[in-house]
Write a protein that binds this DNA or RNA. Structure first.
Lengths: 136, 136, 136, 136
DNA sequence: TTTT
DNA sequence: TTTT
């Protein structure tokens, strides 16, 4: 079991790319605030990279914008890679398989969108093919 | 482990009451929409009763109103009681110990509220005393 | 958003039935303990009804037994029905779309099971047809 | 909102340390398997670093061992630091505030342990003091 | 008894 | 590199 639920704001507009296999991947960072502000201090936040695949990727790319408050459900993924000195590095991101508007005005969209594909979110363990590597 | 995360809208203004022990309890119902709308159909929803205790109860009572979109984290609780024919009945509710605005405009409040008590949410298994029965 | 994560023990062997549409449905109750025991007291528990559909239903029926510790991920569903006096009654259950062994010995099974269908859990909002009513 | 729920096995015995402020911190890595095995392939896993504070830290250090299956609830935390070339690096971990045995035999312990302190898990935003930096 |  |  590997479940993550986040609510936060996009730090930038999302980026949409395609794998060599022509599968859509959308990426953005969520600023997730921690608790309430302390007297005289700014609220702290965690900046968490999110990756979304396929139909959901296109949905995010179309409707999400910088500053928008959204909620996502997904799983934590830890990828390892070698830096240019040949040292092993680790990248952690949240692979989201459900995305929501957490914003009054925008959440009306969900009432209008009727793409049946969107009603069946890709499951948490997306069946990536050998060549469906992340394009970044 | 017993964890529930919901996002939905209040079907009415919340109700604030006090136990005989003078502990605040706030209750409301969340309408949680299911997936996306089918062509020509209305979106379906689950109507889920929420209970919040103590400081958080007063917070909800103060800031939450009918129609507002909010998110809650809590646990499922099943209470049994006897109806007037002496038959055992079951009531299921979500006891929330974290509450959030899922609404752009209202979520500004979190940046301004500085009650340190609110920064330490009551934990999921609230140490209710013998006489801290639900007042409803 | 409507997300539930539970870990607990089956109070009985699960029951497997089929809808008129021949879709498998498995149901059981999870006893989910609350926190730790108080001195001299028994641990309290919530008894939460679980419903599982399709392939996952058959999986549960095959491998789950009374007393086994398992974990489930799903959503809360509130169904209304009329009792024999014509009064509206409400039933709350958790519709699980991911199920796990939370038990050392049994969790080995997951290493051996290779049904690709099981790797793609039905999503949270199962597309029930008009006649896929719960058979109970 | 920042919620993580994981179930997996410890890759090593946990490590217990103390901050300069004498607060206990326990750290370990969870191997969380992804879905089911593919034909002829090994199951893949994510290796996720976990941090636990205070009473819970001492609990984990006492009862958790390499290979044990456990479940945790917490939040994702992203820390930044400067490497020895002065480059900004990011470390992601899960700060757990609830820990459970997901293992038949060990979960009996929870029935016996009666430390009231353990019944009140530290909340997700632990009020770390200025000098309660992670000791690693 | 239900929200947008 | 960060959001309100």
């Amino acid at each position: 079991m590997n479940k993550v639920i986040l609510m936060g704001r996009l730090t930038r507009d999302p980026e949409l790319r395609y794998t060599s296999n022509n599968l859509a991947v959308c990426s953005f960072t969520l600023a997730v605030n921690r608790g309430f502000a302390k007297q005289g201090e700014e609220r702290q936040a965690d900046f968490i990279p999110i990756v979304v695949w396929d139909k959901q990727a296109e949905f995010c790319s179309k409707y999400f914008t910088k500053g928008l408050q959204v909620a996502v459900v997904g799983r934590i993924q830890v990828r390892s890679w070698d830096d240019n000195e040949g040292k092993k590095r680790y990248t952690t991101e949240v692979v989201a398989n459900e995305v929501y508007f957490a914003d009054s005005k925008k959440s009306d969209i969900a009432d209008k969108v009727q793409d049946p594909q969107l009603a069946e979110p890709a499951d948490g363990f997306y069946p990536l093919e050998e060549d469906d590597e992340l394009p970044f």
